[in-house]
């Protein structure tokens, strides 16, 4: 076994996914199979190999600190599932 049901449940919590019992079982089984396949990477000795996160060099981009128009509030709120016209509204956080 590459991944246990417990580890899958932990990943689901980290990923903020409420999986049903059936989904969790099936996902664990499928991830196990995929990780079994991925394990072939351990055949390769990569001790002195630098990791690649990006194929082209990427550096910080600076621009002049000048004010410019941003998204108007009405447009920013237009896709909100719930808003009061000024803010995004979410369930109460503080008791």
């Amino acid at each position: 076994m590459k991944i246990t049901r417990r580890e899958a449940d932990h990943a689901a919590r980290l990923a903020r996914l409420a999986l049903t019992e059936e989904e969790a079982e099936k996902t664990t089984e499928q991830l196990d199979k995929i990780l079994e396949y991925v394990a072939k990477l351990s055949e390769l000795d990569t001790k002195d190999v630098e990791p690649t996160s990006h194929v082209i060099p990427v550096s910080n981009v600076m621009r002049d600190d000048v004010a410019r128009p941003s998204l108007p509030r009405v447009e920013a709120l237009a896709n909100a599932p719930d808003s009061d016209g000024e803010f995004f509204r979410v369930p109460k956080i503080i008791e």
């Binding site: 991944i3 580890e7 899958a8 990943a11 689901a12 980290l14 990923a15 903020r16 996914l17 409420a18 999986l19 989904e23 996902t27 499928q30 991830l31 995929i34 990780l35």
Partner: peptide, 18 residues
């Protein structure tokens, strides 16, 4: 997220998170 994402997307989010 559970109701909004489909099965393959959830599977990949799970794999990546793990």
């Amino acid at each position: 997220r559970a109701e909004g994402f489909g099965a393959e997307v959830k599977r990949r989010i799970m794999l990546g998170t793990y």
